[in-house]
Nucleic acid binder design. Structure first.
Lengths: 187, 187
DNA sequence: CCGTGTTCCTAGCAGTGCTAGAAAGGCGGA
DNA sequence: TCCGCCTTTCTAGCACTGCTAGGAACACGG
């Protein structure tokens, strides 16, 4: 019994290490550098071990990183907004969201560009809903405003990362976003 | 002389055919299916010919498709908005932008996810500026509002393509975007 | 018609994701 | 303590990727 438990624990550890390593490698050198061989090297096992944990292969590993990212994002947004409402809440949301994306570009890429996670569907994981809920709450509980607001934040994060809007005017842009999304003004 | 001209013309034709074929293939089967071998097959030449036209290889071909896309987008937006201003202009812009993205998902992907084109920089190609100008004009000539508005449209296009906002409520969402971005209300 | 210069293709490299089959290891029972 | 079994792990290889060196074939100008 004990040895079985130990093995299960070791297996779970390794599972987590694969995800963590993929994330590190991606954040260090970009997702192109995350190959099954390099991943196997870093965790000090051979490639086939990866498939024992993730039968779906590399895609499933990326999806796992993305899911972890969504969990973090949901928590980050929730604590950042706290009890705040109105303009304050929107400002906290905006800053937290854009800072999150800027500080973990690779994870954010996995979340929105790489992983094909089921979203506006029935089998959408709870974590994915939680993030949206945080946005919705900060924007006054309005579903449509939440969708549009999320799109704005996501678009801004994406365009910034690609260098398609200037970095210098970031602060002003954020204020402008808050103006637009403030539920008191929005409708 | 004549033969030289003919050869130059043939070369230019082939250049265009490579771009067009890459675009077709991507729109048909996704960018993963666009390999140098398949591309070479379709234009009925061998792989190395591609590199004669695009020394940068596949990346340069994708960038060419993206650039073509930006040209189309700029024209589409400009004609769609026409002389309209105020709320009408914003509505025309919103519809034109989102329809563009939805009707050519692969090209849109090339433009925003695949190609690394220099944007908010000095060497930004004219075509790229033109698209932004169209957005800016429709939003009353306000730089910051244009950036945020563009982000909203881009975010919405991206989230829709990934199925992360429901398709059913698309119409309402667009109206909501127009409400938000209407320069008369925005400030 | 023939040498010349360009155009083009064949063949191959290193790297990718993924997997079949063999080897090694630890386990429970005697 | 030893043995046989079964799980775990690795080695080796597949088909594919982007890309390129080298030689063959072609069309051209004289």
């Amino acid at each position: 019994m004990t040895t079985q438990e130990r093995r299960a624990r070791e297996r779970a550890d390794r599972h987590g290490r694969i995800i963590a390593t993929a994330r590190e490698l991606a954040e260090e050198q970009g997702w192109d550098a995350v190959t099954t061989r390099r991943l196997a090297d870093r965790i000090e096992y051979s490639q086939p071990v990866l498939y024992g944990h993730f039968p779906g292969g590399k895609d499933e590993i990326v999806a796992a990183v993305a899911l972890e990212g969504f969990d973090e994002l949901a928590r980050t947004l929730t604590t950042a907004v706290g009890g705040r409402s109105g303009r304050d809440g929107v400002a906290a949301l905006t800053d937290a969201y854009l800072d999150f994306a800027a500080s973990r570009p690779a994870v954010y890429t996995a979340m929105f560009d790489l992983a094909a996670l089921p979203f506006a569907a029935d089998e959408t994981p709870a974590v994915l809903r939680a993030g949206f809920e945080a946005v919705r709450a900060a924007l006054g509980g309005d579903d449509e405003l939440a969708e549009v607001g999320w799109a704005t934040l996501h678009g801004l994060a994406t365009l910034r990362r690609a260098g398609r809007v200037p970095a210098a005017t970031e602060t002003h842009r954020r204020e402008r976003v808050v103006d637009l999304l403030d539920p008191a003004r929005a409708r």
